[in-house]
């Protein structure tokens, strides 16, 4: 069964929007997420295929609602928990 990321040929998406003078990242955190992923792959915490898979197995409604780098961050935290690097609650900002 194909996953939600497999959108080739699918109908129903909005028009293509071009952004003039688009910066590489739209917020500092996006650049950090990008760099964080590269650092973790280089250290062998997980590999590129595992990262891609972690994005592609996001629940479809979450995948579609998330921005590009939000998907990346979701995949990173999913893998950190699954690889036993941190417990899921440790990956959340402590309340209060």
């Amino acid at each position: 069964m194909s996953r939600i990321n497999d959108v080739g040929g699918m109908a129903g998406f909005p028009a293509i929007a071009e952004e003039p003078d688009e910066p590489p990242f739209h917020a500092d955190w996006e650049a950090h997420v990008f760099a964080l992923n590269g650092a973790l792959i280089k250290r062998g915490v997980y590999n590129l295929d595992e990262f891609r898979d972690a994005i592609e197995r996001m629940p479809p409604e979450e995948y579609l609602a998330a921005s590009y780098y939000e998907r990346w961050f979701t995949a990173i935290t999913t893998l950190l928990a699954e690889k036993g690097v941190a417990l899921p609650h440790e990956l959340e900002v402590p309340r209060g």
Binding site: A31, A35, A39, A86, E90
Partner: peptide
């Protein structure tokens, strides 16, 4: 943004990320 900073700090404290590594990677990219 706060979550990303939190995870970065956690990984630094566990020795999985060096100080300044993220900034270096961003600059390089």
């Amino acid at each position: 943004s706060a979550r990303v900073r939190h995870v970065e700090a956690l990984l630094e404290s566990r020795g999985l990320l060096d100080e300044g590594e993220i900034d270096g990677r961003i600059d390089e990219f």
